[in-house]
């Protein structure tokens, strides 16, 4: 229950932010942190709670982004209606990838590589098909109205991404306090033992990838509204997959606050390096890579795990 209150207080505090802060730079930073948190939450559900490391979450992100953008561009559908459609499309791709991989018992590194290959297939397809605008991508028509999921200032976007992140928080919290969550973590820790205890491992994993993919697709749909543009590399490129996995690993895998902690730490680090080294291309990702190696080597349980260890040591 304490966790639940913490989530609500945190989200409430962020919701009050636009009343006191009008700086677009600050609000943008908060929005991008929450956006990274959302992608991290999505990946964390499958990998942190379910133990299935995906290297191709871009497949779900990109599908959400393109589903929303294409519906707006080609059929003039209202952007708000596109959001649930994008989530359903992303979840469907998740179901497809999951059904194939888990049916044939792919685990560990093999699962990671197959998800990566799926993302690449989607990227090449998006590059070659007219519907997605090919290599040029899709530009969402400018409407600048809240009714069309396009806001004048940053505050509107902040509320939307906050609501999505809150959903991610509640899902993670639910995994910690439900039968389904208990089954999912049991499958993560030992699939055979879980099966012997009556857990349908295939089904549990499939549900996890569907939830995870749906959340990821919501991130993609948000991206399209915020930047009003999507192309194959942005949608299905490896950068998104990396962004999704980096946060939870840095913050703490399989925890409720890990993705937020990680996203915040990485954003802070990103800003810091930008101030120190300028906006040179590659610098921030280079540092992220080094952070990833360092975390895996020295802090496999993330910053959150470090806090826990320190708290346990304190008298």
């Amino acid at each position: 229950m304490k966790t639940l209150y913490a989530i609500l207080v945190l989200c409430g505090a962020v919701a009050l932010l636009p009343a006191f802060v009008s700086s677009g730079v600050v609000l943008n930073l908060v929005i991008m942190t929450l956006y990274a948190t959302l992608l991290g939450q999505a990946w964390n559900i499958l990998a942190g709670f379910g133990g299935q490391y995906s290297f191709g979450h871009a497949a779900f992100f990109g599908t959400g982004a393109y589903a929303s953008a294409a519906l707006q561009v080609h059929f003039g559908v209202n952007a708000w209606l596109c959001l649930p459609f994008a989530i359903v499309c992303g979840a469907a791709v998740g179901a497809l990838v999951g059904a194939l991989s888990f049916r044939y018992g792919l685990r560990g590194s093999y699962f990671a590589l197959v998800t990566l290959a799926f993302a690449e297939v989607f990227r090449i397809l998006a590059n070659s098909v007219k519907f997605t605008g090919g290599g040029v991508g899709l530009l969402v028509p400018l409407k600048s109205s809240a009714l069309d999921f396009q806001f004048q200032g940053k505050a509107g976007f902040l509320y939307v991404i906050l609501a999505l992140t809150l959903a991610g928080f509640l899902l993670s919290w639910w995994l910690k306090h439900s039968r389904y969550g208990a089954w999912l973590t049991a499958v993560r820790d030992n699939e055979d033992s879980a099966a012997a205890l009556g857990v349908d491992a295939f089904r549990v994993k499939l549900q996890a990838i569907v939830i995870s993919a749906g959340l990821m697709a919501a991130g993609g749909a948000f991206y399209v509204q915020y930047f009003q543009y999507i192309d194959p590399h942005l949608a299905y490129g490896p950068a998104v997959s990396v962004e999704a996995l980096l946060g939870p690993i840095v913050g703490g895998l399989g925890t409720v606050f890990g993705p937020l902690l990680g996203a915040a730490a990485l954003k802070l680090l990103g800003e810091l390096t930008r101030n120190l080294m300028g906006d040179a291309p590659g610098v921030s990702l280079m540092i992220y890579g080094a952070v990833l190696i360092a975390m895996v080597t020295f802090l496999p349980r993330g910053i959150g795990g470090l806090f826990q260890r320190l708290a346990a040591k304190a008298p």
């Binding site: 490391y53 290297f55 560990g108 590194s109 990671a112 990396v242 996995l245 690993i249 040179a280 291309p281 590659g282 610098v283 990702l285 280079m286 992220y288 890579g289 080094a290 952070v291 990833l292 190696i293 895996v296 080597t297």
Partner: peptide, 17 residues
């Protein structure tokens, strides 16, 4: 897998930089 992914990021972006 994660460590070698991290290495990939470092090398690729070092080259880019």
């Amino acid at each position: 897998l994660l460590a070698t992914l991290g290495l990939t990021l470092v090398l690729e972006n070092f080259a880019l930089y």
